[in-house]
Design a protein around this nucleic acid. Structure first.
Lengths: 371, 371
DNA sequence: GCGGTTAGTCGAAACGCTTCGACTAACCGG
DNA sequence: CCGGTTAGTCGAAGCGTTTCGACTAACCGC
């Protein structure tokens, strides 16, 4: 391993001159620069990261704090990661992914107070995320992918859930659907204050109300079983259901599976839209799911660019940005079945409510009449 | 940020004594040790990673080189990662994930020759993987998750594909299946020499031949569409097909989707087994897939432990280990339909058979009636 | 032709740790 | 009682950079 000293000797210049060629911190004549660069090439010199980090108090390492549960990384999250990694490399930084969740605060504190990170990107941000406090306390620059409840003084990049939900509802209502159920993450996840869950919940309520419709929502565990259970619950609570909007990527598979088990066809009997989903995942289902395409790698790239502005500038303006998901119509959405109310009588675990709620009954009647 | 100097002053000992307390490189009396530890606690001292790395020529960072394509990380790979991260943390190392594939050799060379990595774990190893050469040349200790063609002098942890395939075939044959198709990764992937694809291909040929059966194999793109196409091809080539063994997690979803579109039921008309699959993913399908459960986090843990032996020992014995997948029977496998050859008539892809085979028709009708 | 910049270079002092050699006591066997 | 270990501690020399202050020449406007 050649050192800077070796390069300096070979180029017949001083050690500091070599350093200035590398960092550009002071002007160097073209002639000298060429000599130095030639020497570097000849020796195949690579600066030692540790020495550089010690002297400059900059590690050139950015952390991507990425809780990993047993479900794995969805294609959506992966796109964020690759976008961020590419942007970091372009800027000459290394991006290290640390599978650190809100449970590993000690590990995070260790990582940060060892001055190993120039800055951090947080994923899977919770409304009250203790990782934010830890990093601020240790004055590590940070950018969120997602949002906390109080974002004053914090930079973030997030998905525009309000607009995404609204657009999805718009699509369904435009097709003629009136009875739409929103399948969210689990009740526990919502209670924990997981942003995407709570924000879409609120946005759905607003959007439906604005259309004069009742915002019916059902939580679902993040699993196929959760989706099946949620579907059963949905059909029980709203037998006249014609469309489902699902936030929960895992559940949506169980949900469509259960639909076909019950002999209900998508989209003829029921339309399904999957929210914030990558095209690859949407295509996995049969039929392919109409979905709100996640903005993908752009999220990661913008987050890194913002973070670098904080790291380099020292100050760096606060940057808060929301990116919308684009509706992509595939095979799982269409106009509601006219004529008969297909979903209504689907018994299975569903005995009909002996006395349906008046609201539901009236709506059902209305639907029938229109048909 | 307190430094070691501060700790030494407060504890009234020399700088080197503090260091020895930390590293344990020399014996320290209990009394002194206590003084030093007290001082550290009081100052909330954390060693500076860069300084430590510079002086010791050890970064305490291990790299996990992890190509990330747009499909994202499956639950299987994620389990490897979390297992590895946990094991590394336990040993006082940081694990950094670098989304570096065989295409980013320059980035890898940069990372490695900057002496930023004490060792590396390679995932998604190809039969002739240039990353191995780069790391060896720079004498970075490495352990593979997967295998190259020539493994002399290399430590690795991999899945025992031979046994896994054999067990899966055994299960199907034991149920009475004779006509079994293996759905592999794409022809291109196989040609590239992707280990799991080529090894399972060979193992399937061996296993089937040993049972006196013809080893019919079909490649499939890693997507739902690929699975649908593969199913069509399989039914065309082997109309009397009763079971499918699938290596391709993405394709298997398209495959079962296409089955249900064609009115074929799983497992009555066709049994499906998914290879090297995590329980979470297997449960996503309807019915849940009988699968060979991937060994999960154990792979990552063992790989890290092996790597650390190389890093610490300097020499470290070569360690090569294969872990089997365990068969877990779920809803997608069962005995073949006796009597009639159900799949037989399912004609050219797409249109329904003009005269459905009796069995399939009855089922389909039954399903409809239930609706 | 003179003070004041500016470009270009150098030497040396950090940066915060590890580790080697050396030293002092205490302890051992013979 | 003496040479040889061993436990425990210290001082100092690195590790390979960055960066600060200083120096020399050349150049500026007037």
């Amino acid at each position: 391993m050649a050192t800077m000293q070796d390069v300096a000797r070979l180029a017949r210049v001083s050690l500091s001159t070599v350093s200035y060629v590398l960092t550009g911190a002071r002007p160097i004549s073209q002639a000298t620069r060429d000599k130095v660069l030639a020497a570097m090439a000849e020796l195949d010199y690579q600066p030692n990261a540790m020495a550089r980090g010690l002297a400059s108090r900059r590690s050139r390492i950015l952390g991507l704090l990425l809780p990993m549960d047993e479900r794995g990384l969805g294609a959506t999250e992966t796109a964020f990661v690759t976008g961020a990694a590419a942007a970091a490399n372009t800027a000459g930084y290394h991006l290290v992914l640390s599978p650190i969740g809100v449970g590993d605060l000690d590990e995070l504190r260790r990582l940060a107070s060892q001055r190993m990170l120039d800055g951090a990107l947080l994923m899977e941000v919770q409304l009250h995320d203790p990782r934010v406090d830890v990093l601020r306390e240790l004055s590590v620059p940070l950018v969120l992918i997602g949002r906390t409840a109080d974002t004053t003084g914090l930079s973030y990049v997030d998905i525009d859930f309000d607009q995404t939900v609204e657009e999805a509802v718009e699509h369904l209502v435009g097709l003629g659907h009136r009875r739409i159920v929103y399948v969210n993450h689990s009740a526990e996840t919502i209670a924990e204050g997981y942003g995407p869950a709570t924000r879409t919940r609120d946005a759905f309520a607003v959007a439906m109300t604005r259309h004069g419709l009742e915002p019916l929502m059902i939580p679902a565990e993040d699993s196929a079983a959760g989706g099946r259970t949620a579907l059963a619950a949905a059909l029980r609570q709203a037998p006249d259901l014609t469309a489902i909007l699902a936030m929960n990527e895992s559940a949506v598979f169980g949900l469509v599976g259960e639909l076909s088990s019950r002999g209900l066809s998508v989209p003829d009997d029921l339309s399904v839209i999957s929210m914030v989903t990558s095209p690859q995942v949407a295509e996995l289902a049969t039929p392919a799911l109409t979905a709100m395409n996640s903005p993908g790698s752009a999220v990661g790239r913008i987050a890194i660019e913002t973070l670098l502005r904080h790291v380099d500038g020292g100050n760096g303006e606060i940057h808060q940005q929301l990116l919308p998901c684009a509706l992509q119509v595939r095979g799982s959405s269409g106009p509601p079945r006219t004529g008969s109310n297909t979903a209504g009588n689907t018994g299975a675990d569903g005995e009909q409510p002996a006395v349906p709620s008046t609201e539901a009954a009236r709506r059902r009647a209305a639907t029938r009449r229109r048909a």
